[in-house]
Computed example of a mutant assay.
Amino acid sequence: MRIADILRNKGSAVHTVRTDTRVCELIGDFARFNIGAVVVFENETVVGIVTERDVVRALHESGPSILAASARDLMSPSVTTCLPTDSVDSLAETMTEQRIRHLPVVVDADLVGIVSIGDVVKSRIDELQTERDQLASYIHGGG
């Protein structure tokens, strides 16, 4: 299975923010859109990503004053991305090795989607269910 298959099932919508978006707005976006990460843009280019974990860590380290900071202050500037043609297995390996939960999907510098570890797990469960159903059909069908 490919990343394109995941995007076909879940859609390609990605919530993005500008570098000057305040952290308090990000928190609202996480809750309102039920998401765990936002992709940060500057001049129509992906420049970072901010996750719920980034916000929690910043709150712990800096206290409530961090709410007035900008996405630029919290974002991880080195963003690992993937392609729609990448395999789900290779993405799972990358996410595990790099301890990443969200990967933007980029084609020719254009953001075309985002994949979470939850999407990868769901994809794998769906594959296993399909294999199970095929085996059960084969066994019950007599071969």
Rank of each mutant, 00 (worst) to 15 (best):
P77I: 07
I117H: 11
I114F: 05
D5K: 07
L7A: 13
H15T: 03
S76N: 05
V115A: 01
V115Y: 02
R57G: 10
D89C: 07
A109C: 09
D108Y: 04
L7V: 15
C82L: 06
Y138E: 05
T19P: 01
Q98T: 04
E93G: 04
N43S: 07
C24Y: 14
E25Q: 12
E25W: 08
R53L: 11
R57D: 14
F30C: 00
S76T: 12
I114W: 02
L83V: 03
G36L: 09
T45F: 06
L111P: 05
V39G: 01
V39L: 06
R99P: 00
H60I: 14
Y138Q: 03
V40K: 09
P64E: 11
F33K: 05
S65K: 15
V46N: 01
L74R: 07
T19E: 05
I3A: 02
S12V: 08
T96R: 08
V23S: 00
D73A: 06
V107K: 14
I66E: 02
F41R: 00
T80M: 11
A68M: 10
S62E: 10
D133K: 14
E93S: 11
S65G: 15
D54L: 07
A69W: 15
V112W: 00
G63W: 10
G118E: 01
S65E: 15
L103K: 02
I100Y: 13
E52G: 06
G36D: 08
V47A: 07
V121H: 02
D5A: 08
V106R: 04
V14M: 05
I139G: 07
Q98H: 10
K10E: 04
A92W: 03
E44M: 10
V107A: 15
V47C: 07
V107G: 07
T21W: 02
A37F: 13
F30H: 00
E44P: 01
V120K: 11
T21L: 06
R8Q: 10
T130M: 13
V17W: 00
V79I: 09
I66M: 08
I49Y: 09
E42K: 14
D89Q: 12
D54V: 01
S78G: 07
G143R: 12
M1P: 11
H102M: 09
V50K: 14
T94I: 15
G28K: 03
N9F: 03
K122R: 13
T21D: 02
G11R: 02
T80K: 09
V107D: 12
V56M: 14
